[in-house]
Write a protein that binds this DNA or RNA. Structure first.
Lengths: 191, 191
DNA sequence: CTGAAATTGGAGGTCATCTCCACTTAGCAC
DNA sequence: GTGCTAAGTGGAGATGACCTCCAATTTCAG
């Protein structure tokens, strides 16, 4: 994205200020409620500047969470490299719920990215899906999970977990979903 | 809701016209894209009239799908009355995906209702959740499914299915989610 | 038929999103 | 330092969606 562009000093300063304020606003949960123009004022830049750096609210959200998503993807790769595929999948999915629980805004952000950018899927979202797909594929190849249900179903379940971020008892139910998915993936004796 | 109110003739006429047009617009998938004011014109009523009958877009969507949701809930009760609890649950969940597949708009509507009205949950959504909760509770009581994962997790999975209505290959993945959930719910031999 | 009450409909207020461009500033060449 | 150019800024204002309000209209009981 910003490959051949060594952003000018003031531009970088503004961009960083916006990102810093965005993180702050995410933390008190008001990011998605705040008018985007008001946010620009909060961040101390004009609306034009805000829109040039981040054309949409989702683009900004993605930038804020790019690091977290990258961490998740890295974790997936590390697990896949060091554990049997089935265990890697288990570990990753449970860890993901914990992550979503810690970074409150992340669930809502992912849910938003998954739907609003449905067609031209945002980079972070795509990368995450790839990681899950790889984990599932490895476990299937290893023969430790069933092969008649694709990674898409797992993504859909994760989608549900993200989309339902504001249900009461979210953490418990989210863990329940993961438990069901993992148990369901085990090769069933009855074919 | 409309208990003691025998709506005046013109009022009923308008209300019906709005509902009829709404069904039409749902069928070509443009309901959620169309400006609400434009929809009023399409339906041949003023915006004031539209808003008096249906204060929000979601209220209208709910009215359109009330019948479908009621059918689903009725089906749940019927299944529960005539089949062993476990089979009723299986049949209901698979049937639900088929239903969502047939009534295209329903998935998006449910997804929207589940999130936008999160606090004061819409009637249809609440009724559906109750139906699922009852099915799960019965199966747990019967001893045919595990008791350490609540109905909330199943709802969350359904939420995912609805929220992801526009993924390519939706039907296949949705069936996969149901398969996983059901397989996961079976009492696992390893406790 | 008549009057009161219910209902209509669209003009206009409010608000968030986004664009545009006159001005400012960084960074380079000298 | 000075001057030049292109990159960057920021906020006024266009756009359009949502919703309210009330003068005019319609229904219907008496």
């Amino acid at each position: 994205m910003n490959a051949g562009k060594p952003l000018r000093a003031d531009a970088r300063r503004n961009r960083d200020a916006v990102l810093a304020k965005a993180r702050e606003v995410f933390d008190d949960g008001s990011f998605f409620d705040l008018p985007f123009d008001d946010f620009a004022r909060l961040a101390g830049v004009g609306t034009g500047t805000l829109y040039r750096h981040f054309p949409t609210r989702e683009a900004l959200a993605e930038a804020v969470y790019r690091e977290e998503v990258a961490t998740l993807c890295g974790r997936a790769r590390r697990l896949q490299a060091t554990l049997p595929a089935a265990e890697a999948l288990v570990s990753f999915l449970h860890g993901m719920v914990g992550y979503l629980d810690t970074y409150q805004g992340l669930a809502r952000t992912l849910a938003t990215l998954m739907t609003t950018d449905s067609s031209a899927l945002a980079e972070g979202s795509r990368e995450l899906e790839q990681a899950v797909t790889d984990l599932v594929a490895a476990a299937v190849k290893e023969g430790s999970i069933r092969d008649d249900v694709g990674a898409g179903a797992v993504m859909m379940a994760l989608h549900g977990i993200c989309a339902a971020y504001d249900r009461p008892g979210w953490r418990t139910e989210a863990d329940g979903v993961i438990t069901l998915v993992l148990a369901g993936l085990r090769r069933s004796p009855a074919g």
